[in-house]
Design a protein around this nucleic acid. Structure first.
Lengths: 350, 350
DNA sequence: CTGAAAGCGCTTACAG
DNA sequence: CTGAAAGCGCTTACAG
């Protein structure tokens, strides 16, 4: 019966399927069936077993279970060393959806762990599948091989190469970025537009730059080298870049497309501290549409990354791969939309 | 030999300790020893076994291993539904330290999962120990019981109650908050100081409020009800609060201690949008010392949460509990330091 | 230093 | 519907 004192005070750790079987007066096979295939057990027996399970606070040993079923209901998540909002939002969405579907998340933010060789006892062998986010092109040749060789279902976020024989989810940076740059070019001539991004190896930054160049060319302007600056996704980089532009007297009456919101805000702060008015003398658009955009003044125009959609899609995808390994890998492309705000308003809107 | 074609193309999933033993011409016991207790194996045998392991890309089945050793080198992390920077910084630090020590992280942001009963196949049974972060007092009575009954080593972050027989790590909110309020009271009389925080159930918010009240009392002023406002940790709440204060003409010439940076920035933005100068007419201090503090203008004074220290300490603690279960649980208290910036500068500093 | 054997706690055909 | 038995892939005394 419930509430048995002897059983409720003992540590649950020592309760095995055997103890449950004894208490319920059945075999361990029947206990297992009650847990896994209750249809194959008579209702009365099942009730008796369930009562025993409750009394003893029995929980199956997942190692033993995994040894047989080769399933843990754990999904591995490998993230690059990204920072802040995007990362935490993605994690929450991944966790939320995984939880709803009865899975758990094993997380590692060290991208290098993914491709680590067999030699280091990698706990990812415990997972049923792997979600890998990639943001850097460096060493991707190696990675492609490494990813294809992972002996688990894999979903890759951030890159979709022909060589990748796994499920992929990418964001259509280009379309979103195009809209942003078109917006800038409408009120600022292409020769006075600037791109400030991360380093060359960053996939997102480079594709946003590609869109920037495309639009300028479409408007009859071949981008000059000095219209393109690269370093990193940081507030400080935006600040430094703006300072040197200000020192050269080149920042006024320009428009800047920054590869993320932090860079954009660094630029905006430097400009304001030196008396350059936004958007009157300098129009700015960021990328990511982070919460920052609405916190700063003037509010920052940006391109919205569909973070929650990525998280949702990634979980759906990996679980499909896990539960239907024979299905063909799909390749999803999510849209990024331009969100105009005060920081890039054109003269007539001021 | 290395590079054997047949073996390098086969799926590693099917390679068991048996295949390695056969290839190396030894028993499976010896293979196991090479992996776990190499001292007990002769050097030449060990080399032969290692070669076989490499050739076959053998990786031990962690379920089988866990079944025997009852260890997975996975640490469970249960976080409340916190947002943004604090969360991601904490996660990164946890992961970094765990990685260095050869552990992995199983993460869940749903606090309710921790106390979930035995009935739902909780993957946390795979973990060696659990780091639980608690921020809400509601239902803690239940939780204390639940936490004490978890049959794994546990480290609790955020609360340190007599009833908790586990390792705890807390931040000394009070000392940090005191310094912040003392700073405000030096240039603004206590009757014109306000506290804007989260809801009553939030542990951090309430302890910061406690410090606020203490300091006011120490300066001979009993806080009025209207000096204390509670709702949530959000930009919008700060904004709304400031709007109603402005509507009543009460915001000017006051000082505000906000329970986090977001609230503080909401207040600052509302004030600025209505022409109230900071810090001349309104002095503000936030809490957390997030990156936002340096991004906004004027820069926001804040109290620094030792996030990295918390993460580091939590991993150290849980691993100590795991590896030395008999050692007495410790109770750590980390300091929070006041970081003055422009937003709360007193008149003589302007 | 090495191997044969027992056993960790489960699941799952196979009989009944 | 139920049970006895085999076996998942390891580790670890126990002999030698």
């Amino acid at each position: 019966m419930k509430g048995n004192e002897a059983s409720s005070t003992q540590r649950t750790g020592s309760v095995s399927i055997r103890s449950v079987a004894e208490r319920a007066g059945v075999s361990i096979a029947t206990v297992s069936r009650v847990l896994n295939t209750p249809d194959k057990v008579s209702a009365t027996t099942a009730d008796r077993v369930r009562a025993a399970i409750q009394d003893l606070e029995y929980r199956p040993n997942l190692f033993a279970k995994g040894l047989l079923t080769k399933r843990s209901r754990v999904i591995g998540v490998s993230l690059p060393d990204i920072h802040g909002e995007f990362y935490s939002e993605l994690m929450f969405k991944l966790d939320e959806r995984a939880c709803e579907l009865g899975y758990h998340l094993l997380v590692s933010s060290n991208a290098h762990r993914v491709n680590s060789g067999p030699e280091n006892g990698f706990a990812l062998d415990l997972v049923d599948g792997l979600i890998v986010m990639i943001t850097e092109r460096s060493g991707v040749e190696l990675d492609l091989d490494g990813i294809n060789r992972i002996d688990h279902p894999v979903v890759v976020i951030g890159i979709d190469e022909p060589g990748l024989d796994v499920e992929t989810i990418v964001v259509d940076n280009v379309a979103g970025a195009r809209k942003a740059v078109e917006h800038l070019v409408q009120a600022t001539t292409p020769d006075r537009c600037y791109f400030v991004g991360a380093h060359r190896g960053n996939i997102d930054s480079e594709s946003r730059l590609g869109a920037f160049c495309d639009v300028l060319k479409a408007h009859g302007h071949e981008p000059r080298a000095d219209q393109i600056a690269r370093r990193e996704f940081s507030f400080d980089w935006g600040w430094d870049w703006a300072q040197s532009m200000l020192d050269e007297g080149k920042l006024e009456d320009t428009a800047v497309f920054a590869a993320n919101d932090e860079i954009a805000i660094g630029i905006a702060n430097a400009a304001r501290d030196r008396g350059v008015e936004i958007p009157e003398q300098l129009r700015i658009v960021g990328f990511d549409d982070s919460q920052l955009c609405s916190l700063v003044r003037p509010k920052l125009s940006s391109v919205r990354m569909p973070v929650k959609e990525i998280g949702f899609a990634a979980i759906e995808a990996i679980i499909r791969r896990i539960e239907e390994p024979e299905s063909a890998p799909r390749h999803a492309r999510l849209a990024a939309s331009f969100i105009p705000r005060q920081s890039s308003a054109s003269p007539e809107e001021h």
